[in-house]
């Protein structure tokens, strides 16, 4: 199927989410805003994991770098929203560059562990420098920062639209990237690193590029989360928040542009709905995970891709 269809599909989702702003009831409206910000994180993760095959267990450090880069500038220096966001994104980009330079010397399981270790070290560092970071308790982002072009970002409508804007930009960027020559090299590396190297691609630099893009988008999500929801805390840099994007991407479909959003949406409502039924709602999440890996191994969107739409990006 031609490019027109998949552009139509992705732009259709963006339009649908924009329409959601006007029709969703208050609670779902808030949820979707949150899910869009988290989907940005998952899309960032997907570039490293889904497209380039870099299974990181430490992406929470990039999310956390964005969150704290943004939050600390705001908390200690009363920075405006844009400089604070920029600080968060730059922090994530720098960190992913440094981590990439080191961690990409390893591969496979040891890459998982190295990223996990670096991420743990960052989470503990956030706790250790508690006088600056307020430790595990975290801090509330000053309301002065949470204004942009005269808009109050704590307002539900503004929050939704900003989240929607960020989500749309990252979705379109991802779509563009994976159709671009670079994106194809990412996939080539994922499928067979040796052959890609023989064809003259510099595997290390390509993977580094993918990781930096991935880390930077993750940091953007972390910074946006702090800005829109008004809180920065060390739990967001913990192991759990490294596992989440992996789950979302795998559920939605690794290596698909829509997968991360679908996975994040699915997981959010799975937990939200089942927590109404039982305290042990994570039990239901666990069962769902097992069933999905058994019966939908490619993830939800991945399964669509496999069965119906083979060249879905």
């Amino acid at each position: 199927m031609s490019a027109r269809y998949y552009w139509g599909l992705h732009l259709g989702l963006i339009a649908l989410l924009f329409a959601g702003h006007f029709v969703l009831p208050a609670y779902q409206h808030g949820n979707v805003a949150r899910i869009m910000v988290l989907a940005v994180y998952a899309m960032g993760y997907n570039i490293a994991f889904g497209y380039t095959g870099l299974l990181s267990l430490g992406h929470a450090m990039f999310f956390g770098a964005g969150m704290y880069g943004m939050g600390l500038l705001s908390y200690h220096f009363d920075a405006g929203a844009l400089p604070a966001m920029a600080a968060g994104i730059v922090a994530g980009a720098m960190l992913s560059l440094v981590v990439g330079l080191l961690a990409l010397r390893t591969a496979g399981v040891s890459f998982m562990i190295v990223t996990l270790m670096f991420s743990q070290a960052l989470a503990m560092t956030l706790v250790y420098f508690r006088d600056i970071t307020r430790g595990d308790e975290g801090f509330v982002i000053p309301s002065a920062t949470r204004r942009l072009w005269g808009m109050d970002l704590s307002d539900e409508a503004h929050r939704y639209l900003i989240a929607w804007g960020l989500f749309s930009i990252v979705l379109i960027f991802t779509l563009w990237l994976v159709r671009h020559r670079w994106g194809r090299v990412f996939v080539a590396l994922r499928e067979n690193e040796e052959r890609a190297s023989l064809l003259g691609y510099d595997a290390f630099r390509t993977k580094l590029g993918a990781l930096v893009i991935s880390g930077t988008i993750s940091a953007l999500s972390g910074a946006a989360y702090a800005l829109l929801f008004g809180y920065a805390g060390a739990t967001f840099a913990g192991v759990q928040y490294s596992i989440f994007p992996l789950l979302w991407v795998l559920l939605g479909g690794a290596g698909t542009v829509l997968g991360p959003f679908v996975g994040a949406l699915f997981m959010f409502y799975l937990i939200d709905l089942s927590s109404g039924v039982t305290d042990a709602y994570m039990l239901i999440a666990g069962v769902a995970l097992v069933l999905l890996t058994l019966f939908l191994p490619q993830g939800l969107v991945g399964e669509v891709k496999r069965r119906l739409w083979r060249d879905l990006p």
């Binding site: 299974l55 666990g286 995970l289 097992v290 890996t293 058994l294």
Partner: peptide
């Protein structure tokens, strides 16, 4: 799962939640 490395990771994460919550 044919012991596929990635799917096994996800499945065992699911197992982790099942065991933890059943214990709770």
């Amino acid at each position: 799962l044919n012991y596929d490395p990635e799917r096994t990771i996800v499945a065992t994460i699911g197992l982790l939640y099942i065991l933890q919550q059943a214990t709770l």
